[in-house]
Amino acid sequence: MLRSRVESKNLIPAVATATVMLIGLTILGCQRPETTDRKAVEPEGHPQAQAEAVPIKGRAQMWSENCMRCHNIRDPKSLSDTEWQVALHQMRVRGNLLAEEHKGILELMQAGN
């Protein structure tokens, strides 16, 4: 019993650090203009896309660096534009992709279709 109390106390700094970090990220993230809203993702050539899209080289680099971290990179044509939206949403969560990476890779996959 004594040992369990001691070990539980050892975890208090970790839990506290995690809590503070999460609160900070939530506040910071909510103050920042979001990339999460995918309305900004328009088809290639669309004026809005040209204005806001990540540069092609940057997108390709994001694609290879992030996807290859776990698996081989797949052909953009293997999924439709809509399917890529869903697949990359899952990868954003599972692979902890940055919002900009999520947006950039999605743009690249849709442009490759």
Binding site: L22, T26, G29, C30, T35, R94, A99
Partner: peptide, 17 residues
């Protein structure tokens, strides 16, 4: 199920890896 709260935070619940 997961929800993108903002660019830095995603929350979710259920059975997960």
């Amino acid at each position: 199920a997961s929800y993108l709260v903002n660019d830095y935070v995603t929350v979710g619940a259920g059975k997960f890896l």
